[in-house]
C-alpha cells in the first residue's frame, strides 16, 4: 500500500468536508474491495475517509412500501435480518451469498454499489428492484446509477447514505458463481413490482444491465414458461478464462428461468 492519512468522521457532514478538503481522498466502507486494491498498489490516495463510525447510515428499516438499507449496513446484517426476509427475501439470498461468511461480516452494501464491480451482487438488486440511491446531495434512480465498469453516477465527494428498495410483489436472485473468485459469473435478479417486471443481470457484461426483452415477455406472463424459447445474444458480454460470452449468454437465460421459478412465478 502507498501511504495515506486515515480519518474516521462521526457524521456524514464531517466526512463530506474531509472529502472536499483533501487532495486525493477516497471513502472507505467495508474495505473488502478497496483494501486489496490498495495492497496491490493498483490505486493511490492521500486520504482514506472511513465511514464506519457514522451510525446514521447504518441499519435496516421498513418504510411503507420500501425497505431502506443504510450504506454502512454489513452484508451479514442484511442476510440475517427478519425485516429484510419478510419484505424482500431475494435480498436475504443475495446478501447471504456475497463473498464468504468472513467477508459478509465486514463488507457493506454501500461499498458494494459505489464500487460497481461488474461481477458484484448488489448492483443487480438496485437495478432489478428499481431502487433509489440516496446520497448526501440527491436521490439517484437505480436506472441512472451504474454507468460502466467500476463507474457510477456519483460525483466526486458524494456519499451514498442509503438505498431505498421498493418491496416487490415477487422477486428472486440466482447467482452462478465463478469457480475461482466466487463472484457472480452471472447473476440474475428478477422482480415483479407494482411498476412492472424488471430483470437485472450482473457478471455477464462490463456493467450490470437490464434485460428488457425478457421483461416484456414476463410482463405478459410472469412464469418460466413464458421464457421457454427465450435466449440471450452473446454480443457484448464478458469473455475471459472462466467463460466465453456464449456460455454467459446461456447462463443468463438459465439463471433467469430459475430466478423466475424461485420467485414463485406461475408455472
Amino acid at each position: 500500500m502507498y501511504a495515506f492519512d486515515y480519518h474516521q468522521p462521526k457524521s456524514v457532514d464531517e466526512a463530506a468536508q474531509m472529502l472536499g478538503a483533501k487532495p486525493e481522498p477516497k471513502l472507505l466502507a467495508g474495505g473488502m474491495s478497496l483494501l486489496p486494491t490498495l495492497k496491490l498498489r493498483l490505486a493511490q490516495y492521500t486520504d482514506l475517509v472511513d465511514l464506519s463510525a457514522i451510525d446514521s447510515i447504518k441499519g435496516i428499516e421498513r418504510d411503507g412500501d420500501a425497505l431502506v438499507i443504510g450504506a454502512m449496513t454489513r452484508h451479514v446484517e442484511v442476510a440475517t435480518s427478519d425485516t429484510v426476509k419478510r419484505a424482500i427475501p431475494a435480498l436475504t439470498t443475495l446478501a447471504g451469498g456475497i463473498g464468504d461468511p468472513l467477508v459478509r461480516n465486514r463488507g457493506t452494501m454501500g461499498g458494494s454499489i459505489a464500487n460497481a464491480d461488474p461481477a458484484a451482487d448488489y448492483p443487480s438488486a438496485v437495478l432489478g428492484l428499481g431502487a433509489t440511491v440516496i446520497t448526501d446531495k440527491r436521490q439517484i434512480a437505480g436506472d441512472d446509477f451504474f454507468k460502466g465498469l467500476f463507474e457510477t453516477a456519483l460525483e466526486p465527494g458524494e456519499i451514498v447514505m442509503a438505498v431505498r428498495y421498493p418491496v416487490p410483489l415477487q422477486a428472486a436472485y440466482i447467482k452462478y458463481p465463478n469457480p475461482a473468485s466466487r463472484f457472480a459469473l452471472v447473476g440474475v435478479f428478477v422482480a415483479r413490482t407494482a411498476a412492472g417486471v424488471r430483470v437485472a443481470v450482473t457478471g455477464a457484461g462490463p456493467c450490470v444491465f437490464r434485460l428488457t426483452d425478457a421483461e416484456a415477455l414476463l410482463a405478459k406472463n410472469f412464469s418460466a414458461a413464458a421464457l421457454e424459447n427465450f435466449t440471450v445474444k452473446p454480443d457484448g458480454l464478458n469473455a475471459d478464462i472462466h467463460a466465453t460470452a456464449e456460455y454467459r449468454a446461456h447462463a443468463v437465460a438459465v439463471m433467469l428461468k430459475r430466478a423466475v421459478a424461485a420467485a414463485g412465478g406461475n408455472t
Binding site: 486515515y6 474516521q8 472507505l28 474495505g31 473488502m32 483494501l35 486489496p36 495492497k39 482514506l48 472511513d50 464506519s52 461468511p101 468472513l102 467477508v103 461480516n105 465486514r106
Partner: peptide
C-alpha cells in the same frame, strides 16, 4: 488470517489497524 474482532470473525488482512 482470520481473527475475531468484538466476537465476530473477520479477515485481518483486510482491515486497517487504526480503524
Amino acid at each position: 488470517c482470520t481473527v475475531h474482532v468484538n466476537g465476530v470473525a473477520i479477515k485481518s488482512c483486510t482491515a486497517l489497524a487504526v480503524a
